[in-house]
């Protein structure tokens, strides 16, 4: 359960709106069943009081919305940043994707968000959810009220949270946390331990479910090209559907390479995938490799840092050594 409450956020939002600091608020809007929360732009106190919510299903990362919203809106926009969102925020600033002056950022601590897929796999027919200290009390169509522990339904990315520290804000609500020595590379390591054939089969199995809806790309805060190469009829690789499974894999591999070094490991790609494909593992592998080859680097930890792939230092791995690593893997 979140320590930060809806009331705290509403008070802050109303205060900043009424004193003129901001003219709009990016926030979470309540849905039909308590878990189906929609990111929304609020511009009046009334809208906020009626629709603003904050709970364990507020996983959506708002940073990317700033690219479009800061261009469109007059005045400043208030954004609430969970620790992982704040890394995306910094990375976007590093890439000059929005005007920092047009944003008022409030950092908020986070206890880990719930994964609605995990919840639905446990409980059928969710009518509403109550959040208590000892767990969620889910009112259901078939089994009365079911108690679910927060830990049971915590999102994978939150179980393996890399940092509880907000790295960007104008103001912080609650206490700041620390960078965590997480176990996030364990799953990558188990993939590395596979034989190339097993690994190929693993990815083929996962990616074969892809319906090429592009949600992973559209939600990714590192994917901010104005015109994605896959949407551009002039690019020669534009396609709305994969013709072959090879092409499908190409889409994911190209996207993974394009965000390499810029991916903050925010986990949005896997969260939004309707087919539950663990896409974040692709870039987590890159992050692990970069850490091992070029020294620890976390995209978005600060504004203006140079990613290892676009930087040169004398200690860098020689191309031959990289080649050998690949040989050993094969």
């Amino acid at each position: 359960m979140q320590k930060i409450t809806r009331d705290q956020l509403i008070t802050k939002a109303v205060e900043l709106l009424s004193n003129g600091t901001v003219s709009a608020v990016l926030g979470w809007k309540k849905g039909e069943f308590d878990y189906d929360i929609t990111p929304a732009v609020f511009t009046t106190e009334e809208e906020i009081n009626n629709g603003f919510v904050y709970n364990d299903f507020c996983g959506a990362n708002f940073s990317k919305y700033l690219v479009a919203k800061t261009k469109k809106l007059e005045g400043k926009i208030l954004v609430f940043l969970k620790p992982c969102d704040s890394y995306s925020f910094n990375q976007l600033l590093t890439e000059h994707r929005f005007d920092r002056e047009k944003v008022y950022a409030v950092g908020i601590g986070c206890e880990g968000m719930a994964d609605v897929v995990k919840l639905k796999n446990k409980v059928d027919g969710i009518v509403s959810i109550d959040y208590n200290d000892d767990g969620m009390y889910v009112d259901t169509l078939y089994d009365g009220t079911v108690k679910v522990d927060y830990a049971e339904v915590m999102a994978e990315r939150c179980i393996n949270c890399k940092s509880k520290k907000c790295v960007a804000y104008d103001e912080l609500l609650g206490e700041d946390g620390e960078v965590i020595d997480s176990a996030r590379f364990d799953e990558v390591a188990s993939l590395e331990a596979m034989t190339p054939d097993e690994r190929f089969a693993f990815w083929q199995g996962e990616l074969s479910r892809c319906i090429r809806c592009n949600a992973c790309r559209d939600a990714c805060p590192a994917c901010t090209c104005e015109k994605c190469v896959f949407d551009n009829p002039g690019s020669g690789v534009e396609n709305k559907a994969p013709v072959t499974s090879f092409e499908e894999q190409m889409f994911h591999i190209i996207r993974a390479f394009h965000v390499a070094g810029r991916c903050t490991d925010c986990g949005e790609c896997s969260r939004v995938c309707p087919q539950n494909i663990p896409l974040h593992l692709l870039n987590r592998k890159f992050i692990k490799d970069m850490n091992e080859c070029y020294g620890e680097y976390q995209a978005g930890a600060e504004v203006g840092s140079r990613a290892p792939l676009v930087d040169y230092t004398e200690g860098d791995l020689e191309p031959g050594e990289v080649f050998e690593r690949g040989e050993n893997d094969a």
Partner: peptide, 16 residues
């Protein structure tokens, strides 16, 4: 205007 504010244009809704 209001409801499309945060639509990603991903097309998931149309494909499923």
């Amino acid at each position: 205007d209001e409801m499309s504010q945060t639509c990603l244009g991903c097309g998931t809704c149309t494909f499923v």
